[in-house]
Nucleic acid binder design. Structure first.
Length: 171
DNA sequence: TCTAGGATCGGCT
DNA sequence: GCCGATCCTAGAT
């Protein structure tokens, strides 16, 4: 679960994520040990947010998973709104159908009002405006599908690695 | 300083 | 189902 307290409470249950495996993953921003201003957050402590802009338009929210000095992260791609549906609708626009409120990385960030101001934020601190919350729900292994990642064709062999995890109930 | 390209989305056909 | 928008980032010069 992920909870955002920016201008009101919004809670999402994540049902689609992708893993990026650091310096050995050609699809990862830190492939080959790249360390730049943008990726600096990924080289930091686990449990922090890595937010970046793609295509000059959309934000993507990642969670640093290993660190420090192990730049691996999980991209949050989609989720289902558990709380704060009205707020999400207001942010996404009145003409957006419920089914497409949070079914993409950019949409998810918009729904939670996440922008690069959250880059480096601690997702585990109890008083953080944006945080990961474990509600105790455990998803059975057989209900999780492993699929190739999306939008990383340029990464060669790594683009076919089954690092995209989707819970079946949402498919 | 310049230039190419991208972990997407939404509108149009 | 396809294609264009749009601007930041990173690498090249």
């Amino acid at each position: 679960m992920i909870r955002a307290h920016a201008g009101g409470v919004t809670v999402l249950r994540l049902n689609e994520v992708e893993a990026y495996l650091g310096v050995d993953d050609a699809a990862c921003h830190t492939y080959g040990g790249r360390r730049t201003r943008r990726t600096e957050t990924m080289w930091g402590e686990a449990g922090h947010a890595y937010v970046y802009l793609v295509y000059g338009l959309h934000h993507c929210l990642n969670v640093v998973t290993v660190g420090p000095d192990r730049p691996e992260a999980v991209l949050l791609r989609a989720g289902e709104v558990v709380e704060g549906l009205d707020l999400v609708r207001a942010r996404r626009g009145p003409s957006v159908p419920d089914g497409s409120l949070t079914d993409g990385p950019g949409k998810l960030c918009q729904a939670l009002a996440v922008d690069r101001g959250y880059d480096g934020a601690d997702l585990c601190a109890p008083d953080s405006a944006l945080r990961i919350h474990d509600d105790g729900t455990r998803v059975e292994e057989h209900l999780v599908r492993r699929l190739p990642r999306v939008g990383v064709d340029y990464a060669g062999e790594a683009s076919s690695w089954p690092l995209r995890l989707v819970t079946v109930s949402s498919v």
